[in-house]
Design a protein around this nucleic acid. Structure first.
Lengths: 189, 189, 189, 189
DNA sequence: AATGAATGAGGCTTCATTCAT
DNA sequence: TATGAATGAAGCCTCATTCAT
């Protein structure tokens, strides 16, 4: 597909509309209205509605995965890695908030699109590996359940797309620290 | 609406299909196929597709809210309340897994259906109140951010709908304890 | 596909419209108008426009081929076989005139639909075999070009769909005899 | 319309594409792709798709008609005229094969375009007149049906567009002779 | 209660055509 | 002359909904 001049506008409009109404609940006419063109004109930019979804969802997915891979490869104590992972995760969410919300709503963990299943589960495995290393090195609790724990962290972070306003008073780094703080040390006095 | 004999089958089919494809992505024909009737026959049970969604989503929503209200009213230390709240939450998820998944995917935190916004936010306030009481009574950390913390717990629990198999090896109570364990005491050694 | 009550009406309307405007030039709304229903209602009868084309075109194609096969298997002198083949061909055209016209316009010899190519070329081979047998038995000219001759007969017969009115003064048998008469004995005095 | 430098390429591409997919089945983008330009650029050459069809179809139609008129005016025995008419017809087909195929598929005998009906039927009348003269002069059979016979010859010739390769082993003159041979003298031994 | 069949609105997509550059 | 991008109409198809039986 060519990426003509108004491509970024089209992407932003699609992300906004998909987030507000859901992928299936949104129509291409909604998207076109948001851009200020006719629905047929969208086909200068895309080849199908589904391809538009993938275009919206790809940037945050790829960025999160590549940053997480890089981080996982570093040699750093697990607690610090977890804190930095939360920052990366929240940072990607904040940077591409609408796009990432669409990923979280429509793709993450749902197994609806085989194309994305591999990426999706690789991220879970990366987080699990970080936790496992922490248990091995003694910085995390020995009794930690490695099946559950990664999903707890990921769920808490992904759930940000349902209530957080990344342009509000709590920024991405601050938010990441709060979540990783609870995850690492709990809320008990 | 009359609720004739095959009403439970209809509900179960709708929940299953809505969970698999999403509300907008699912068609009434999908639901009818699942029940083993023609789509037109569904209108002996429902008055519209949206009413069917609400019927699917109401039982877990009402049960969770009423159990949470009852729990919140008890006089119990916050850490124990949190553990029991997690059990209630995971218990409702497990009991109505498909139905609850639809609630989580289509309703929770999205603000798409005004009818559900009040219930939805009341639950967050209940959890927040439990945490606030814990801070006040000294059983939870003083520096706990009460805007964020309820969403961390709720997010981790709701995210169960994306990966947990309630009929798998980890039962609801066990799962609730693991999640509330991490939430209360963290994962650090 | 189910074949509900108005299936024959749908077929007849489609054949009529496809013949008048060509398959691609005709719209499903044209067909629906002809039947007296809405275009969406057609999908109670068909699964796609192309399937409708195939349904229209199948009866004459299959009938012609099966009758031609039966005829080819008989033991009869070639000139008589040719005359009877022409009667079969013109008879199928007359019986399913609109449907057969669509076959001739949209399918025969065009190679546009792989599904039909085999049937299409089998018929040519059948005719060629009849002619070859005639040459072998001495009832047809020794210098007959077997590559060309079958197409001459088939072309003359198929061309009927462009000018003949099967409900006009010249009936199918009479017409077949005239064409096979020219083909067998020529027009020279 | 101006006829700028790449006009012949445009015509050739249109003929090729119209022949392969049919006029309505082909898109201007198909044509433009074949030329190697964008579809909008075609409007430097044409004013509408239909005009393009007419441009494609005009050369063979006019050439055949004018050559047939000239031939019909000569004073020559009917059998020879028929043989030469077949050569003219096959010659035009061969010279403009793709263009002529489009004429045969989309125009001949269909009555879809009033602009062409007169030319189309004039040709039939010319052939019929040749045959009628032959009957009158005694060189053709007295019992020849003059309604049918011209269409037999024309049909056999036009059907060449469905199976003949004019660049193959049998050239136009040879092919014309075979067809007129069958038409004049039949295939019987 | 269920079916068969229809409706009508609307969604995705295509495509002839236009136009500023 | 060609391009890039748009328009607008229309086409195929889907689907929630209705209704006579």
């Amino acid at each position: 597909m060519p990426r003509p001049s108004r491509w970024p506008e089209v992407m932003a409009a699609a992300a906004k509309v998909f987030r507000a109404k859901g992928y299936h609940g949104a129509t291409l006419e909604d998207v076109a209205d948001e851009v200020g063109m006719l629905k047929g004109s969208l086909y200068n930019y895309i080849s199908s509605k589904e391809e538009l979804l993938f275009s919206v969802v790809r940037p945050p997915a790829e960025q999160l995965l590549s940053e997480a891979r890089a981080l996982a490869a570093e040699v750093v104590p697990a607690p610090e890695k977890i804190a930095r992972l939360a920052r990366v995760h929240a940072g990607v969410l904040a940077e591409h908030f609408v796009y990432a919300s669409v990923y979280v709503h429509e793709v993450a963990g749902l197994g609806r699109y085989p194309e994305w299943a591999a990426m999706d589960s690789e991220y879970v495995r990366l987080v699990r590996a970080v936790l496992a290393a922490g248990v091995a090195e003694g910085s995390l609790r020995t009794d930690l359940d490695l099946r559950t724990a990664p999903h707890v962290l990921i769920g808490a972070l992904n759930w940000l797309t349902r209530w957080w306003d990344p342009d509000g008073p709590i920024g991405a780094a601050e938010m990441a620290d709060r979540i990783s703080g609870v995850f690492l040390d709990g809320v008990r006095a």
